[in-house]
Design a protein around this nucleic acid. Structure first.
Lengths: 235, 235
DNA sequence: CGTCAGATTGACCAGAATCAAAGTCAGTGG
DNA sequence: CCACTGACTTTGATTCTGGTCAATCTGACG
């Protein structure tokens, strides 16, 4: 995942930036990636539809315009690892040269913008500022991937879940204070390196401990954010 | 970690390329990063010495010339995650903008070359080809980090160890067929997300199963490479 | 109402961590 | 030359987190 550049919040860095943030910033400073926009074409994808597959030649990169996207790696035993959960404004598919290591699928019906890599590279050749911004984007994605690595490797199930909820809250908390989770328990599990039963159990525990409440399975409100922050540890 | 570009071997991609490989290639195609060399200054570091700390402003990037380097992230409970193990020819510290997320320390007495970021960026501004190569390097490091994430999250202790041994064999197998591991069991454990006892037990198991032999704790020969490859799975 | 996919809960199990005790080896000094 | 030290490694016993297997529960939809 490539993120729009800038680092101001004290928040896990694999969190992307919302379209809204980008738009807001654009009024202050010009969007450093605006130079790309004219290269892109917009396309709609259905829920579950694959945008690109593992091993596909990495001919294009993308941005989520509406909806949500996951990147997925299938592993030997039939398991799945979700690399990123992408929301509007997030870039993805920039990371690969040669071929895509993850596939990308729409979690819900979505709109994505596609940029042909060749055209992006060509434009970057002639626009040093764009090139620098692209590289910073990739570097930030790398830092985010490293952070996620530590998270998956060094934290307990409940720490991961706390971290996940805080991340999602920061990215998509609605005006009513509820987070909308566009993905299933299975997606959450595969993103956090857990199984669905564990995800479900931790949700139940959090409810019991009055850390969260749930309107329905996909709408969650963080009641005790401080406790969740403490729980997640300082990764 | 940034790797010298090119992708030919069927080997885990977070493996760097040896100086020897780079030199060999340079006789065929010009080293795409040769443009950087004049910007670098060489420095010696003692065993255990810190090259930069977590949170330090990322003012320089580096390449290992001799010896070995680890990147380290300290986690809440006093634990440690090693992000990369770097051998001669490997670049590191390129990934961070702003500040370093990991620290870097010499595993053994080493020589590293340091490149001021400002100068690198300036040169890249005026050299589109260099800029492209730098970005590809970062993208490859990102892909490697993602692969490592999957490895740490989805595989058993012995799969990780098999993968680690094959990786190290590919990077530093000597003429006598022995791999020299410059790091302690503790480093291996923290690189693979295990504890030292588990690392030790898996080594013992591998010896018992005639997959490896050991001259001493730091010199290992892969006896049954095919079996190790099978063990590591297809991450 | 029945069906079906997804979510929850419970009982049990396995793999790796933790706790504890030796074993190895290089270096030091009598 | 040998005993002593201290760091590192290996091995064993036990614990515990999270996975596996299995049984409901829930809610959307025809």
């Amino acid at each position: 995942m490539l993120q729009v550049h800038q680092q101001t919040r004290t928040v896990p860095a694999n969190i992307g930036w919302r379209e809204a943030d980008v738009a807001r910033r654009a009024t202050l400073a010009k969007d450093p990636l605006a130079a790309l926009e004219s290269l892109g074409t917009t396309m709609a994808v259905r829920r579950g539809q694959e945008i690109y597959a593992e091993g596909d030649p990495a001919e294009c990169c993308y941005k989520v315009v509406e909806g949500s996207v996951r990147t997925v790696k299938l592993v030997a035993d039939g398991g799945r690892q979700i690399g990123d959960i992408l929301l509007p404004g997030d870039f993805f598919g920039f990371d690969s040269f040669g071929e895509h290591y993850f596939s990308a699928q729409a979690i819900s019906a979505s709109v994505v913008k596609r940029y042909p890599r060749r055209a992006v590279v060509t434009r970057a050749q002639g626009d040093a500022t764009l090139a620098r911004h692209l590289n910073e984007l990739t570097a930030k994605a790398l830092q985010a991937a490293r952070r996620q690595m530590v998270r998956l490797c060094r934290t307990s199930a409940s720490e991961r879940m706390a971290s996940f909820l805080l991340e999602m809250a920061d990215r998509s908390e609605g005006a009513d204070g509820y987070i909308h989770l566009p993905m299933s328990r299975s997606d959450i599990a595969d993103y956090l390196g857990l199984v669905i039963e564990t995800v479900s159990r931790v949700f139940s525990q959090f409810k019991q401990d009055r850390l969260i409440t749930m309107k329905d399975v996909n709408h969650i409100r963080l009641v005790d954010r401080d406790m969740l922050v403490e729980l997640q540890g300082d990764i």
